[in-house]
Amino acid sequence: MPELRELTYAEALRECLRQLMEEDERVFLIGEDIGVYGGAFGVTAGLIEQFGPERVIDTPISEAGIAGACIGAALTGMRPIGEIQFMDFVTLSMEQLVLQAAKVRFMFGGKASVPMVLRMPSGSGTGAAAQHSESLENWFVHVPGLKVVMPSTPYDAKGLLRAAVLDDNPVIFVEHKLLYKTKGHVPEAPYIVPLGQSKVVREGSHLTVVATSVMVGRALQAAEQLAEEGIELEVIDPRTLKPLDDAPIIESVKKTGRALVVHEAVEMGGFGGEVVARIAASEAFDYLEAPIRRLAGLDIPIPYNRRLEYHAVPQVESIVREARKLVRGEY
């Protein structure tokens, strides 16, 4: 059997971008330092050499301008892929994304479409402190008209990005800084991971853990540890936060009777609340053996100090602890 080809998350994204640009000349990239610099995290490295500055457009530091440029180009037949250097900076694009990209189609009676993708890295763990470590995905989840994607593996990164670019709606594509260097099997041929399909990444019978982005890996590690104690976690990665495919989650909770939602973003007002509400409102309610819990970021900005930063968001140990409590009824 031939060895499976492995790529990093960043390489998988780059391969997807390259393939899309080779196939379709309407696809172009626009963002800060994505050209010769290759992007702050190297995702677009080498693409300007292949496609030139007209299709790999370096912009001034103008986040509203980047978002607006994507919208205008998308409205007039192009397939723009914007990059926001850090998800934190998308705060400067919010008007364009929330009031323009998301609403244009509806406001104009369903007659316009905005097929754009805005990529951005979220998350802490790099010592970048409070203004370069945000996880703001749920802001976008709250906006009708947008789709929100959050891949956790190189394979999903490539397949979901392709699906996002081929989608005729504005898609917020949330990457994670700590994932860029993680490796995994990625087929070379283009493929799609459809938007709006949750994935059961590990089967188990005692507790359903719904985790997003970098937390998927941490949940899986926690599951390995707990398996030694006889506790089997079922880990589900929604992959697309909006639209959310909640059916596998509800089915899983019917099986396990317990649920824990894990994400890096601050717990208060976070995506976990939505998942918990969907479970509580579903037929899974009648199968619950324990309260549905969330494990998420503390309600604080991300601190600089390494130790504080570590404790600001869920880690493998905290997932193990919380999961064990729920399964043992020690909550």
Partner: peptide, 26 residues
Amino acid sequence: TPAARRLAAEHGINLAEIQGTGRGGR
């Protein structure tokens, strides 16, 4: 728990007669 209530209803079991093993005797 909700699961216990559902099962009890489905099988005609009186919950009061069951010794709970969950938190606080649930």
